[in-house]
Design a protein around this nucleic acid. Sequence first.
DNA 1: CACAAAACTTGACGCGCGTAAAATATTCTG
DNA 2: CAGAATATTTTACGCGCGTCAAGTTTTGTG
Lengths: 343, 343
Amino acid sequence: MALQKVKTMAELATLSGISRPSLSKYFNDPNSVRDSTRARILRALEQYDYVPNIYAVNQNRSLTRNIGIVVPYLSDPFFAEVSRNLEPKCAQAGFNPILLSSFGEPERESENLQSLRAIKPAGVLLAPLGERSDREAMRAFAKDIPTVLFDCEIAGMGEAHFGSNNAQSIGTMVEYLCRTGEPPAFFEMKDAPNPNAVQRRKAYCAAMERLGKEPMVLCIEGQGWEFERIAFRAGERLINGGLLPTDTVLCSNDRLAIGLLAVAFELGLKVGTGRGASLRIAGHDDHPFSRFTCPALTTMSQSYDEIASATLNCLLDIVDSGERPEERHVTLFDGTLKLRRSA
Amino acid sequence: MALQKVKTMAELATLSGISRPSLSKYFNDPNSVRDSTRARILRALEQYDYVPNIYAVNQNRSLTRNIGIVVPYLSDPFFAEVSRNLEPKCAQAGFNPILLSSFGEPERESENLQSLRAIKPAGVLLAPLGERSDREAMRAFAKDIPTVLFDCEIAGMGEAHFGSNNAQSIGTMVEYLCRTGEPPAFFEMKDAPNPNAVQRRKAYCAAMERLGKEPMVLCIEGQGWEFERIAFRAGERLINGGLLPTDTVLCSNDRLAIGLLAVAFELGLKVGTGRGASLRIAGHDDHPFSRFTCPALTTMSQSYDEIASATLNCLLDIVDSGERPEERHVTLFDGTLKLRRSA
DNA sequence: CACAAAACTTGACGCGCGTAAAATATTCTG
DNA sequence: CAGAATATTTTACGCGCGTCAAGTTTTGTG
């Protein structure tokens, strides 16, 4: 703790007897100097408290060691979890993650990209808001700075995309629900803020038709990201009005399912598969709270970790190689069925 | 969109006919130049696409316009909400918020403070992990950089503290529960990671004694931040073992209550105040999900917004004035009772 | 209109570090 | 151990901007 503070590299150079360019090389890549030199530097760093001034460093580098991470909503456990996975991995690769949330607002998303520009990041991991995103601004951004999309796909945007295989996961769920009871209706928001929702509806319809059933889509009104509340209100109308076409509802995502479960409970409907139950509800995403709903929610889990890792690795490859891939790759991960009590 | 990109201030100076020092003054504080000059600069900025290089700017400033925000857990809706409130307010005050989450790990918290050091922020808003925080490192940090604590108090640390008035809020809840039914037992984690928990237990005991009741503390085992799961397991044992001393349980926070509600449901216990209900459960925090639990959770709400604003304003005052306050102020906000169905 | 005060321009230096070129030292090869 | 190959040191410049000092212009006052 009694380390002597050293402010500049030049000072450290005179104190340690190592030339400043060598120190500079070392801090840019410790392996770029000879073993013996690295040992000497490490010894010096044990003795003196020196950290390179990041502002001076970045001023002279066209590419910084920053990686921007832009997500639509930090409160959403999916993105909180993804960012948690991402941070240490960035750090380990020698990059500095900068986390920005758009809080569901397209203006905020554009601002985030704008402020990232000022930071000159080596690359950006972007989960776009979706339909409401300013595509033009985003495209311009992705052209200047290597950008990899995850979660939400926007065709042709960025160097690659990583997300969940909605066709597979919704298909699996529909197949399960049909096998074990009445075929499900599909519960979704009309103005879905996210292309995943559209893909999931299509996957639902395709799966139903494949199984020879008539698709039943319950398209509810509602704006914004307060999914639970929107689902609660709509569910109230549907249940009270006797408008549910079947006793099984597959929700486009867990947060809608949580709202629907809440209103079913409040209205005295027993949800589940056992005797006495009059409604089955299933979700999609394996939201952290879904195992604590009443009853616990049957859902499709996506591997947060897998998606996060793959996205980051893709970006790191691009950054390290210094060249953008010619082809844009799309990688989708299969979900797995989480069988719980609600369906 | 056809704006000509201008890279340096000098270039902008020659193009616009305004001297570079004047431009520099303008970018540091638009009001520091004469109205007519400002108008000319603004006109130039409409014509040319210029943004000061933040690295060059910050290199020459001892105090940057960055504000660090360090929270224990971003997945936790309280902090997600606080950070959402904070971001635009920082931006409006001309500061750049940098959000860092410690993900419940003390090492990560120390690393976050360390990396903030490198960024030389004007100030930091810090919600410490609590007991497990590295106090020595934190104190050293707070000595170097103006730091204001929120949510979790650590005596004497930082310039000020803003949090919730646990004595008032728990007192209010205990009083309500006693008035409307059996006196509550208090459900909490044994190794609470946060001083708020300790304060809440004390507040509970004090309130019970004030009302002439015997405090009943249910102290459950469990480590980490997976509160729902911990509460679920412990609740299972308590309920199955018939170990609940009363039909009313006040949980130290909503996430514990959510776990307890889930297990009560699973075990077939009816929770609520109506006839047929055999258990009342109350929480604390007004977690965003608490209105969608089954039944909806009665809890104490804290004003996220108020706490966030007050904390930031305090820091901005310190930063703007450039002087640390002599006295350390502690401000606690009262909670309000959210009466729902669970108690 | 004269004069002082305020704002501006010109010119110059420094911040801490990346990086290039040339000279010197070290390590490796046979 | 000689010679080549590789690392390091020395020296020097530039990055884009903050900021200072001196001189010039503009503004406001009586």
